[in-house]
Design a protein around this nucleic acid. Structure first.
Lengths: 360, 360
DNA sequence: ATGAAAGCGCTAACAT
DNA sequence: ATGTTAGCGCTTTCAT
C-alpha cells in the first residue's frame, strides 16, 4: 500500500515534511495554470475556461484571471493542452523542398491563414525521392496534428495507407486524382499541357519543342502537350516533339542549355513550352545572346507565373496556378474538419490560367 | 471520500461493472505504449526504453517490443512524451516571410539538419512589421520548443525580454550584434556595404548609385556603402550617393524602375549596388532595353547570389551569404544545447564573399 | 457559473 | 535490466 493516508487524499500538499515518495518529480519551474488560478482565487478549470471560452465565466472572474495572466506572464502549455484535449492545433505541411519558388505561395498562405485561426504549421520536406517519406510520416503522426497538407508527394502506397489509418485529416494539393486519401485541392497537369499546345497552335506556331523537369508532374504536363501538339500537326516531319529533360529543381542555366540543345536537334523550332518560368527565362537569355527574337522567331511559354515574369523583356507568357487559393482552401478544409463541419465536396479543381503576355 | 476502494488500488481495471466515476474519460482509441508493452509482455517503461534507449534493454526484450510495434503500427505520441520529459523536440523558425528567395536556404537547411537529429521545425512568419510579433511569440512559447531560430526579426524589446525569460535557447541569425538574446550566427551588413564600395573603387568606378530595400538591414548595407563611396570620392560633384528605395520584398520590376530613376537623377552613373539579385536583374534588363552595356558602361553588384545569377548574361557579380552554413551552425547550437553541451563562443560571424563575375 | 476528480500517454525518479 | 509510482499541465466528465 502506498504511504499516503487514504483517509485524507486532499491533504497531500499539506504534509510537505514527509520525505519525497518515489516517482515524485519537480516541475520545470514555469508558471502553470494552477498558479494563475491560485492568484485569481479560482479553480484551475475556471481559469482554463476564462482563457478558452471566456463567455462561459462571469465577467468578474474573467477579469481576475486576465490580471493574473498579465502579472505572471503565463503562457499556456499547448503540449499539455493538446494531450488532454486530443487537439494539437498543429498542421503538418509537406513539400518536396522549400527551395525554389514553386511552393512558396502555398506555404506562405497556409502559415498565415492557419496562424490566424490559432494553428501552427510544422514543416516537412520530403525531398524528390521517396526514401525519406516513412521517417517523415512517423515524425508527423507522432505529433498528432489536426491536419496534414501534402503538396505533390506521398507516392508510396504504404505511406498513404498509414496516413489514412491515422485518422488525421489530409489535404492533397498540386494535382488531381479521382481517389485522394481524403481531401484534395488541385489542378490537371494534363489539361495544362493540352491547353498550351492549343494556345500555341492558335497563335500560328507549327514546330514546337519542350524543356521540362524530370519529376512526374512536369512530365505529365509535357507529355500531354506533346500529344496534343502532335495531334494538331505541330511537329517537323511528323517526328515526335523534341524534349529536353532537366533535373528538378529547375534552373535558369538549364533553360539556356535546353535551348541550345533543342535548336541543334530541330533548328526550325518556333515555339517552346517550359515546365517553369525559370527555365523560360534561361531560354530567353540564351535566345537573346544568339540574336533570336522573341516572340517573332520563337514563342515561349513558361509555368508558374513567378513574380518577375511580367517584368521581363519581353514579358513572359505563362501558366498561372493560384497558390494562394490552394492554400486558403486547404486551410479551410482542415479548420472546418476540426470544427466538426463535414464538407460535401472533398475534391476541388482550382484550375489554372494561361497569362497571355508578349513572349507568345 | 471517493467511491474507490482504497484497499485495492490495483484492481481498478478489474471491476468494470462499477459505474463510471466522475472525471473518467475514454481514450481517443489509438494504440498506446501500454498496448505495445502488454503485447510484448513487459512494463510500459521497458517498452519506452526499448524505443528511446535500445542499449538499456536486453536484446530479447528489444526484439519483442519491436515486433509489437510492427504488429500494432504504434507511433509514439510526442505530445505526451514532450510533456513528460519537458523536451518537445520541436524548433521554431521565424522568418519575415517564406516568399522570396532570401531565407529559403536557411529554412531548408534547418529543416533537414534538425529532422536528421529527430527534431521538427515549426514555421513562423513575422511579417515585415512588428505588429504580429507578440501573437507569434505566444504561439511559439506555448509549444515549449527546444529552440528558436530568429532570422532578421524580433525587434521589439518586449518580445526579446519574453523570449529571454522563457529560457528557450535562441539563435539569432542574419545580422551581427554585440548583445544577442542568447546565441548568434550572422554577418555584418555594414562591412558588406563598405567592401562593395571598395571593390567598385578598385575596379575604377567613380560615380555610384544604389537601389535598395527599405528594410533596416538593407538600409545599413546601403548606408555603409554610400558612406565609404563618399569617402573614396565616388560621387558626382561631392553630392550624396543617389539612392532609390523600394519596399521589401524586392522585385525585378522595382529594379527596372530603379535604374530609370537613377539615370534621370545622375546620368553619369557608372556603377550600381543593388540590395538583392532580383533588383540587379531588373537593372540589367532595363539597361539592355536601353542599350546600356554591362559592365562597360555600367557596373552592377547584387546581393544574395541567387541560383540564377551565375547564368545571367552577363553573369552577375554579387555578395554571397552562406545560408547553408548559417542553418547548420544554428541547428548545431540548438542540438548541442539540448544535449547539455555549453558552447564557449556564442557569437559566430559567418562572413560573406563578393563573387566576382562579369557584371562588375 | 463553478468545481472535484480523473486521466490524456508518456517518462523521471527511485527501487530492486 | 526491469519494474513501481507519481506526475508533466492541461481538459473532459460529471456534479453542484
Amino acid at each position: 500500500m502506498p504511504p499516503t493516508n487514504p483517509s485524507s487524499p486532499d491533504l497531500r500538499h499539506a504534509d510537505a515534511a514527509e520525505p519525497r515518495r518515489r516517482g515524485s518529480r519537480k516541475s520545470a519551474g514555469g508558471i502553470t495554470l494552477r498558479d494563475v488560478a491560485q492568484l485569481a482565487g479560482v479553480a484551475p478549470i475556471t481559469a482554463s475556461r476564462a482563457l478558452n471560452t471566456p463567455s462561459a465565466v462571469s465577467p468578474k472572474v474573467l477579469q481576475k484571471v486576465r490580471e493574473a495572466v498579465e502579472r505572471t506572464g503565463y503562457v499556456p502549455n499547448l503540449l499539455a493542452g493538446g494531450l488532454a484535449s486530443n487537439k494539437s492545433r498543429l498542421v503538418a505541411v509537406v513539400v518536396p523542398t522549400v527551395i525554389g519558388p514553386v511552393f512558396q505561395e502555398i506555404v506562405h498562405t497556409l502559415t498565415e491563414t492557419l496562424a490566424a485561426a490559432g494553428y501552427q504549421v510544422m514543416l516537412g520536406q520530403s525531398g524528390y525521392e521517396n526514401s525519406r517519406e516513412d521517417a517523415l510520416l512517423e515524425a508527423i503522426i507522432g505529433r498528432r496534428p489536426d491536419g496534414v497538407v501534402l503538396t505533390g508527394i506521398m507516392r508510396s502506397a504504404e505511406a498513404r495507407k498509414r496516413l489514412l489509418a491515422s485518422g488525421i485529416p489530409v489535404v492533397e494539393t498540386w494535382d488531381l486524382t479521382p481517389t485522394p486519401i481524403d481531401m484534395l485541392v488541385g489542378f490537371s497537369h494534363e489539361n495544362i499541357g493540352r491547353e498550351v499546345a492549343r494556345y500555341l497552335h492558335a497563335a500560328g506556331r507549327r514546330v514546337v519543342a519542350v524543356v521540362g523537369g524530370r519529376d512526374e508532374r512536369s512530365r505529365r504536363r509535357m507529355d500531354a502537350f506533346a500529344q496534343e501538339a502532335s495531334a494538331l500537326g505541330m511537329t517537323a516531319n511528323d517526328a515526335p516533339v523534341p524534349m529536353h529533360h532537366v533535373t528538378a529543381p529547375t534552373t535558369l542555366g538549364q533553360g539556356r542549355k535546353g535551348l541550345a540543345d533543342l535548336l541543334q536537334r530541330q533548328p526550325q523550332t518556333d515555339a517552346i513550352f517550359c515546365s517553369s518560368d525559370l527555365l523560360a527565362l534561361g531560354v530567353m537569355i540564351e535566345a537573346q545572346s544568339r540574336g533570336i527574337r522573341i516572340p517573332e522567331q520563337l514563342a515561349l511559354v513558361g509555368f508558374g507565373d513567378l513574380e518577375f515574369s511580367r517584368d521581363l523583356q519581353p514579358q513572359l507568357t505563362t501558366v498561372r496556378i493560384d497558390g494562394t487559393g490552394i492554400g486558403q482552401r486547404a486551410a479551410r478544409f482542415i479548420i472546418d474538419r476540426a470544427a466538426g463541419i463535414e464538407v460535401a465536396e472533398r475534391i476541388v479543381d482550382i484550375g489554372f490560367s494561361i497569362i497571355q503576355r508578349e513572349s507568345a
